[in-house]
Design a protein around this nucleic acid. Structure first.
Lengths: 144, 144
DNA sequence: ATTGAAATTGATAAACTGTCTCAAAATTAT
DNA sequence: ATAATTTTGAGACAGTTTATCAATTTCAAT
């Protein structure tokens, strides 16, 4: 683990330094677990980490994932009643194709769409900071 | 009120008829209030209607707004922890520009973006049912 | 290495949003 | 008007996220 996710670890450390926050065992642990997946809920991570660390509290997971969002490593996305945290550290912004049948999530990027979004925003006098695009439908398998 | 929103009222009646549901005073009231705005939360409508109808229950608002969704008059949208119900009866699908400064919401439509979305979906074998596009940023006023 | 101020954690309570329950009331077809 | 069925209101309940706070950990300065 010491040699993996060095870049993200550095990004986290930088954020911590800037805000008088401390690097804890839990934050390292949660970062490592977080970077191992694309999308995860706080609850899921809680259960996942409970196997090796039964006393890691759910509140700490929430706090830490929100910290990652502040640090720009993660991005929270609300699906109905669930909040999923996406790993946006190793890649640029991306959007999602979501299968309403099997819950599968496919990521994609599209330069042209992004450009048109900028255009629309400009036309309305807006300056875009972030955006979210989600396409809901059925994947090939679930259509049968 | 009798002469306004006749089209939507008819749409609701048709849905009710098809599903053995009844037209109640509350449903008329909530429809009327709902059509008077673009976006609203159940909670906000609850408070709004409480002034004239103190005994209208929150559960009824939720039930009725969900009914409107089933009937195709409304569309539920999750913004963070809030669920807003959009009026989609008098217009087609639309997306949102959201000012993170003043919370203002501007609606827009863009044929070209929609087309590109279809293209992306097809490329991944998906059949889109719905989608959500939200652009977050600052409006002209809030940029100063 | 020790210390001490400041931040963090874990456990749980609390807040929030939305749904469920069920007796009482309203609606619709007869 | 009556009866069958649906709907309502009020509050209980469930799921998710945040707040609380004493105990612990971190980290900079000895």
């Amino acid at each position: 683990m010491a040699t993996k996710h060095v870049k993200e670890m550095d990004a986290l450390k930088e954020h911590l330094g800037k805000h008088q926050l401390k690097l804890t065992r839990q934050r390292e642990l949660i970062l490592s677990a977080f970077l191992r997946q694309e999308h995860i809920t706080a609850e899921a991570m809680y259960h996942q980490l409970a196997k090796s660390d039964p006393h890691l509290g759910l509140a700490t997971i929430y706090r830490t994932l929100n910290l990652f969002c502040d640090a720009g490593l993660a991005q929270a996305r609300h699906f109905g009643s669930q909040t999923k945290y996406d790993n946006v550290s190793h890649k640029g912004h991306h959007d999602h194709l979501i299968c309403t049948g099997c819950e599968k999530i496919v990521e994609f990027e599209n330069e042209e769409i992004e450009r048109l979004q900028e255009e629309v925003a400009t036309r309305h006098g807006f300056t875009i900071k972030t955006h979210r695009l989600e396409l809901y439908g059925l994947c090939t398998r679930c259509r049968d």
